[in-house]
Design a binder for these strands. Sequence first.
DNA 1: AATTACTATCCCAGAAAATAGGATAATAGA
DNA 2: TCTATTATCCTATTTTCTGGGATAGTAATT
Lengths: 291, 291
Amino acid sequence: MQVFAEVAKQQGFAPAARALEISTSSVSRHVIDLESWFGVTLFQRTTRHLAITEDGSRYLTECQKVLGDIERIRHLAYTELQQPTGTLRITAPVFLAKACISRALPDFLSTFTDLTVEMIVGDRLVDLIDEGFDLALRVGNLADSSLVAHKLGDFRLKLVASPNYLANQETIHRAADLRDHNCIIDKVASFANNWPLRGAGKRGYVSVNGNISVNNGEIARDLVLQHTGIAVLPAFFVDDHINSGQLTEVLPGEIDMTVGLFALYPRTKHLAPKVRAFIDHLAEYLSAQSH
Amino acid sequence: MQVFAEVAKQQGFAPAARALEISTSSVSRHVIDLESWFGVTLFQRTTRHLAITEDGSRYLTECQKVLGDIERIRHLAYTELQQPTGTLRITAPVFLAKACISRALPDFLSTFTDLTVEMIVGDRLVDLIDEGFDLALRVGNLADSSLVAHKLGDFRLKLVASPNYLANQETIHRAADLRDHNCIIDKVASFANNWPLRGAGKRGYVSVNGNISVNNGEIARDLVLQHTGIAVLPAFFVDDHINSGQLTEVLPGEIDMTVGLFALYPRTKHLAPKVRAFIDHLAEYLSAQSH
DNA sequence: AATTACTATCCCAGAAAATAGGATAATAGA
DNA sequence: TCTATTATCCTATTTTCTGGGATAGTAATT
């Protein structure tokens, strides 16, 4: 089509060949093949003169539509698709949505004005591909070979309890003392009931006990606030409460483990610009927070 | 594009391959190549599930425009271009336009209602290709290798003179008597002043003389009507006058030559349907006339 | 829990095509 | 008449396309 249109434009095979930087034989062959496919003459031509036929004109009209669309697709490929546009579908647990995304989002959206974000909040681990998500945020490692886990940062962990609880229990001087306390256990966390503490001996773990286990940080925090016991929770998740005096940090700095924040996205050769942009933005936001 | 669109439609590589009757590896390769050209993922896929990405949807939209246009072009090729449509540009001398074309045309146009005819009348032999003509009608042979000469029929020739002229001259009994008459000579005609007559001897030619030569039949007829002499003219061109008594045929049936009516069109591998239709129609009209 | 059926991708060899270069015939202008 | 240019044909080479088999992964079934 391109060759045909160029011949029509340049009014000749040789000029068209020069314009397209191909051989004249190629041009000739293309036109001849087209004509024999149509069963129609597209150009009346002698060696010295060329005129497009009526059939040729009709084909040219259709050709130019197609070539125009192709050109738009090329433009789409080279510019639009390389920029973060469209809708970014993210899923994240409630506490991450509250603590990270909702704070990082305004800046992100004002940077990329062509972008819309759709956020589905929930702890349920959905099938990213099946439900059309571009990105999931999760804390801790996840084993899923079809997903890429991109580490965004580490959250420090803190031991917390309510002042009320602590006032009514024995004072905690060292890690081993935790064994005598009601420890809220998160079975999903990699350490479960073996809490990683610096002053706990050679292995660095204290095996704790408690009458509650829960797989949700928010619930755990609620329980602590109601003076139920001691919990290990991400720092950002309890810092506000510590500052306001609602919670007290126990054995500050003794926790010897961080928990990773991961961005998960489908394994693909070409990471979409919008996903890349969001991950970069979030990483930058988090590193700014940690100062 | 076709493969991509089919994958999107069938929601899978394997179903698309079956629908297109190609191998799954081909389908896979096409999509992969597209994606690496775009630098973008078009489908999020596992071995069991497939979902089009937002970028894929945008490309699909553009694809479908192109595929729709291609489909229209295919339709154009298979139906419209195979039928006599558009404009048929004909050139012919005045007398042929009067005698043949204008009479054959109404029927032709009522048969092919999608067709428009553009008739440029004139004796000048134009460059068909240069001036965009589809067809030229000429009497007698023309040497032009770039044109195809399609014989439509033979015109019988007649010797004619006005009754007035004949009354004032010696009676003509046989071919040789013509030597004593004023014969209007057409130097363009192949026989020039050697008129082909049956009773003229072994060679069949009579060398005639006259004080007028003219290369236009209509003028020749006008001269004859003005009692100037005897002329050789196509039968259809003088029959009306003979019937009305304005002209008289001399030595009826003695002329031993016909003159061919030719349709000339550019040498091309694919004769346009409209040209073919017109030639066929004209041939049919002429054969009906000769009965 | 193991098996089965199906899927997408990779790799490779053969098939199909596009391409360029040279040769040829034709044409317009010098 | 000669020259420069043109479209086409022919052929060898390069490039692209294609299908089959192997592989790894996945969902449903036994």
